[in-house]
Write a protein that binds this DNA or RNA. Sequence first.
DNA 1: CCTGCAAGTAAACGATTGTTGACATAGGTA
DNA 2: TACCTATGTCAACAATCGTTTACTTGCAGG
Lengths: 218, 218
Amino acid sequence: MGNEVQEPKDLDGGAALADDELIRSGRDADVTRRALVRAARRRFATEGYRATTVRHIAADAGVNVALINRYFGSKEGLFEACMNRTVDELDPQTRARAASVDEVIARLLAHVVEAPNADDPLQLLLLLRSSGDENADAIRRRTLERFTEQLAAAAGWSADDPASQPLLLRAQMAIALMLGLVMLRTATEVQPLASASADQLTEPLEQVLRVLLDSRGK
Amino acid sequence: MGNEVQEPKDLDGGAALADDELIRSGRDADVTRRALVRAARRRFATEGYRATTVRHIAADAGVNVALINRYFGSKEGLFEACMNRTVDELDPQTRARAASVDEVIARLLAHVVEAPNADDPLQLLLLLRSSGDENADAIRRRTLERFTEQLAAAAGWSADDPASQPLLLRAQMAIALMLGLVMLRTATEVQPLASASADQLTEPLEQVLRVLLDSRGK
DNA sequence: CCTGCAAGTAAACGATTGTTGACATAGGTA
DNA sequence: TACCTATGTCAACAATCGTTTACTTGCAGG
């Protein structure tokens, strides 16, 4: 009873962004929550779930450790919050009906390689990190599968036509390529891939993604 | 002094294989060592370094926990041994001069997708798992880079010609695709990719790999 | 002003983890 | 047989981690 998790008040109805570089001046539970999720997501994505300690997250966020349990119940709760937030930020982009395969490819490249926001690739990395928690892992899997379907849909996939089912596999290969790429660039930091510029990566990636997703051949 | 790590006697000069399903009957240090590496590699690859406990590894190998420290010095030492063994098993296959790009592609597919030995994909997964140890991570990075060069070499890369340098990036993209694929299939187990048969994967993968590695165009 | 509650802090607890040292045992050798 | 060393076992250690509890601080409304 007493140890009920405080639910976020969801007073985010205002400007949905401007999470960047928020200063924790006064005492504001929402700001604290966001700072925690932000710090946690970075740690979880780059170092994995188990290697990340709640004390590190709290230190990154400039916040007391106990607040993690106060606001998210547990470390797993925080991880799940990170996952949900990644889903929320990824979903509108995949939901937005893509006019063409080229548009889908352009969006993918923007997220993975061009990286206007340095945290964008990390969001994808989160989809590879397992907490061991059954609940969070289910979210992760479902997100990837939904991601697949919408990628395939943009490439002309139809649920009715069984002949287009291999397209689902092709879409997942595209995702595998993207995730592997971010992994090698961000976590492993293997050269020369890690320090390659967006320009160097764009052309071959476009080529490959088109082969995978475009039914019009090459 | 007393706590010196016992070096493997390297009396593996005999048949290099036959590690499969070895029975620990008498007390044999080499058999124990191999059983530990075998069990550890599976755990490390599927669950990551931090999530694996030495007690789990020992239990899997049917061995007392303390023997890990006796034979490998530490958990990190065991991890490094796993890494080295993966390198040793991967190296001759990449060293063997490939006659053509098709041959390289065929080898890749055999390891990743067709999987005659169920542990083969796991070897690759190890290259994505970080222990946080500087030493083991260096091995990991260097292995991936050597892997890249030999893949690129088979595709016609020459160190002299700066114009062929983008081929290194393409080779690493191929590796990224393979690693991402194994990750999604083995660790995340996302559908339908995880339960897809080798036949379903071979054709599109061949197609993509050829685009990445074959300079003769499509 | 002061009172009440949310926000934040500090310290400690229990569980788990990697590791170690003392002890037991098998098996070859003199 | 009687060692002696390599091999394996057992129990406990210190450190770390997630979590909880009791306490303090700041802010808003009477």
